[in-house]
Structure formats: structure tokens, C-alpha cells
Design a protein around this nucleic acid. Structure first.
Lengths: 225, 225
DNA sequence: GATTGTGAATTGGTTCACAGCG
DNA sequence: CGCTGTGAACCAATTCACAATC
């Protein structure tokens, strides 16, 4: 059912958005299973670990053209490779953080990125006090240095951790400099050319959503887990 | 069309999940408009500010039973109050942060919570070195103190900023202690009773999703903005 | 016997398009 | 005339349920 091109990598077209957003979840569960030495896993078990239901797991995995074995389940290692490949994680994507305030610094020190293929490789700030200082052995540079840094270090992901008023400008400079995807933590809407994937994380927004469900006798929250 | 009870506050039932998750966005845009002194706004303009389309804005607002004026638009101040009320923001929801590592500290110092009705009012950590120290004038306490803190300070929201392995345990203790909704930053699935609204923010997951769309000639990302 | 893969049914969300109304 | 509110049409995602198959 799923086309493979030439017998090689086979990057599948059009995985539904909802599925894409769950793949990292499955990946995390598979890593855990692998580290425990489990060699196969059923959709039911994987669903439990990922906090979704089994039908969803099977449908999602079917979009990868994936290989389960009826009556047995999925091969953990194989599936892990498939998922990683679908997400494009076979190659590292070096990250630059712009805005070394509280949040930027916390993100810089947060271990979870390096280990998952997103080495943090450059820092940018506009405060002359900060420029030239080092963080984790990496120099903090000026926004004007970004094009050079993208070149030299192959930066591909930009994280915006600036105040809201600076975010659009930073995004524009990132795009100009050749950054290829952007994660925005500033609490404001920014716009970028359609070929640049953009996601946002807004902390206050999350609390407000919780507030809604708390206020009413919430039964479920959708974005479960 | 929309029922009001007794002529008072009128908390509407069953606003669709997708709408709820956009209300904070509208709210932010409305605050901005209000601060610029704009007194009315059309769905088209609000859509532009919030990064969605006008039909969606109108449909979303219609779920609040809201009052636009045909030919004119919405009253900014009035709508702002309506949205705030729908989200349950009329009353402050004091927050406890558990886990005062990098992320916890950054969240503690992040200004955006207090100003939006989520005063950070307690800190918990398990490191004896940290317990007893102060942060922003607030003492860092032990997890065992949580029930008392919930009582004394009326804590209602819990933020989990611990390592993954501690997260479920912390969630259980929060629920026991009477915390009413939870925001989880630990990269793991946790489960809580269905009456406790739960959301998660997973930073590495966001990067992996970006990775997918970057790898292919992404045109759009869905979670736009 | 167990568990996948998937069509069919269902639910939820978005967009269209226009009647209704200030 | 302009802009809202909303049915109707459309599209995406979820869930069901079962035949396929190891």
C-alpha cells in the first residue's frame, strides 16, 4: 500500500498532522522499551505507554508503512528506526537560542535537546553586557553575527526566547540568515514564509486553558497526558 | 440562543476544545487593542492579530454567546471581560512549582504568570541544599509540606518541572494535597484522576515535530502562528 | 489465539456563503 | 452598506469492528 522509491529510504508523503504530533511520543516510549530490553511491543502496550488508545497507535503507525506482525506486535528496534527516520532525526539539527534571559538560559541548560539530536550550538543576545560572555563554553553573540553562525555551524533550528516586542524582528533575521525552522516562546504571533515550519509554546496560554477546565467540572482535557 | 442562569454570570456549557485553546489568543489580542485605545474590533482584524481566519473567530466567539454588532464589530472591553470570564480568569489561581532545577527557576522568574492571574506562590524541591533557601522572597519547601501550603495559600495549579522519573509521584502527591489542575513539563506521560485537568508541554517533542516539517518541503504546520 | 491493518461509521472542527440586522 | 451569526458543506481525525494472517 505504501510506495517505496527505488528500494531506499522511503520517506513517506503526507503523514497526517495529528499523527506527526504523536510520533515523538511513540518514540519516547520505544526508547524506554528498548532500554529495558523488550524486543517486541503490541499496539495495546505502546498505547498505554504513550497515553493514547490502541486503535490510534495502529492507524498512526500504518501511515509510516510500518511493519507489525499479526499475532505478535511490532519490533521495537525496527519501529524506533522507522519513526526516527519519518521524523527526520537521522541527522542532527543544530539549534541557536536567541534571547538569553531567564528562559533562554534555562533552555540552554536543559539537557533534553542534545541527547535527542538537537545540539545547542549558538547563543544570541542584544545586551552588550552579555555579548562575549560564555555559556556552556559557547560564546554569546550579536544578532548581526547570525548569518555567519548559520554558515559556520550549520544551524538549522532557531529558538526565540525574547520579549514579545522583539520576536517578529528576530524571526525575520533568522529567516534571512537561513534558519530553517523556528520554535517561538515569545507570547506573540509571528509570521514567517510558508516554507519555514513554525511552532509556538506559550506558557501563560497553557495555564489559561487549564483554568477553563478547572472552573467547570472538567472531565477531560483532550490534549490528554 | 445561549442560556443565562438567573440573569447573572452565565458560564456557558461545553465550549469546544479547539475554541477553548484559542480563547487565550484572542484575549491577548484584545488586551493589546485595549491598550492602544481601540474600542471596537471586527472579526477580520481580530483574526489577523490572533493569526487565524475571520470565520473561525466569529464561530468561536459565538460559543461565548457573545455580542457583536452587525455592521460594526465587537466592543473590545466587553469582549475582553466575556473571554476572561469564560476562561475563569476573574479569580486568581495561585501556582506551586515543584522542581527548582533550571526550568523551575526560569519559570519562577518568568514574569508572564503573575500578570495574568497566576501568582507563583510556593516552591517545592527535594534537594536538602535548596530547601529553606528563598526565591523571590518565597521559601523553597519539601514535598511533604504541600498539603499545608495548599491550605494556607489556596494553591490551585501545580507545575511539574522535575525529571521524568519523579513526575508521576509528584502528580500523585499534588492530587492528594488538593491541587486542582496540573501543567507537566517533565518528558513523560503521567496519569491523574479525570476531574483534574492536565496539560503537558514537551520541549523536545516540539523540536521533533519541527524536524518532520523541515525535512519535507513543509508548506504548513497546522499549529500555525 | 493473538494482534495487526484498514474500510466504514462517527465525531469534531473548519470553511463557505449568505441571510439578518444595525 | 458592512459585518456578524450560523446553517450547510466539507474535511480531518477518531473510533469501531472485523477480516487477514502470523
Amino acid at each position: 500500500m505504501h510506495k517505496r522509491y527505488g528500494g531506499t529510504v522511503a520517506i513517506e508523503r503526507d503523514i497526517p498532522e495529528a499523527t506527526v504530533s504523536r510520533l515523538p511520543l511513540y518514540r519516547r516510549s520505544l526508547v524506554e522499551l528498548a532500554s529495558k530490553g523488550e524486543s517486541t511491543v503490541s499496539s495495546a502496550r505502546l498505547a498505554e505507554l504513550a497515553g493514547v488508545n490502541a486503535a490510534k497507535v495502529r492507524k498512526d503507525l500504518s501511515h509510516l508503512g510500518s511493519y507489525g506482525v499479526r499475532g505478535v506486535g511490532y519490533d521495537v528496534e525496527y519501529l524506533l528506526r522507522q519513526v526516527g527516520e519519518a521524523l527526520g532525526l537521522d541527522v542532527d539539527a543544530p539549534v541557536v537560542i536567541v534571547g538569553m534571559g531567564n528562559l533562554g538560559q534555562a533552555l540552554a541548560r536543559y539537557g533534553g535537546f542534545e541527547s535527542r539530536g538537537f545540539p545547542i550550538t549558538a547563543f544570541i543576545d542584544s545586551d552588550p553586557e552579555k555579548i562575549g560572555t560564555e555559556f556552556d563554553g559557547i560564546r554569546v553573540d550579536h544578532l548581526d553575527d547570525l548569518p555567519r553562525l548559520v554558515q559556520e555551524r550549520g544551524l538549522s533550528v532557531g529558538i526565540i526566547a525574547t520579549p514579545a516586542w522583539a520576536a517578529q524582528r528576530v524571526a525575520d533575521r533568522m529567516v534571512e540568515a537561513g534558519i530553517r525552522s523556528i520554535l517561538n516562546f515569545a507570547p506573540t504571533i509571528i509570521s514567517v514564509p510558508p516554507e519555514i515550519p513554525l511552532r509556538k509554546v506559550d506558557l501563560a496560554t497553557e495555564l489559561q486553558i487549564l483554568s477553563y477546565y478547572q472552573q467547570r467540572g472538567s472531565v477531560e482535557d483532550g490534549r490528554s497526558a
